[in-house]
Design a protein around this nucleic acid. Structure first.
Length: 157
DNA sequence: GCCAACGTTGGC
DNA sequence: GCCAACGTTGGC
């Protein structure tokens, strides 16, 4: 039974169309422990709602799938990177990433305002004021409600 | 651009 | 270990 997640990204930096273009993308740069722990809990085959933050409009742009489970985020060892972490070591990497690929693009972004209207999403980190968590689990009910509101279905197998 | 809310840092 | 200061996130 695949689990469901939500991944936030700023489309000015990397949006769902970019994921479609590249095919597979390492989800690097997560530097928050709770978000990292969620990444580490992901399994190949899990689905993730791809959310556009700081965007016009903000909302869910599509569904991605996890194609590689958590491994060391290489940017933490790159002194040139903004995500460099001098306190991390290759022997004991502090930060992880997964690989994701596109699964299903929404015909239109399901806006945050629309998500707020879905009862299943009450209490989610997405709709709670002030929560900035960028990776978190989504319940099957929330996942189904989002797809229904977007007017799409995942192909059966 | 504003600003509320949050996580992290660092002085003590 | 406390907590103020700071930097960042992210909606609007």
């Amino acid at each position: 039974m695949p689990a469901h997640w939500l991944l936030k990204s700023e489309p000015d930096v990397f949006g769902y169309p970019d994921l479609v273009r590249v095919g597979t993308e390492p989800w690097n740069g997560v530097r928050n422990y709770l978000a990292r722990n969620h990444l580490r809990a992901m399994k190949v085959g899990d689905r993730a709602l791809f959310y556009h933050s700081n965007a016009h409009p903000t909302g869910i742009a599509g569904v991605a799938k996890i194609v590689r489970a958590a491994y060391a985020d290489d940017l933490q060892f790159d002194p040139e990177s903004a995500y460099h972490d001098p306190k991390s070591s290759p022997a004991d990497p502090r930060w992880s990433m997964v690989d994701v690929s596109p699964l299903l693009a929404f015909p239109e972004v399901l806006t945050l305002a629309q998500v707020r209207e879905l009862p299943a999403w009450e209490g989610s980190p997405l709709t709670q004021k002030g929560t900035r968590l960028s990776v978190f689990p989504v319940t099957p009910l929330q996942f189904r409600a989002a797809l229904k509101a977007a007017g799409v279905e995942l192909p059966k197998k």
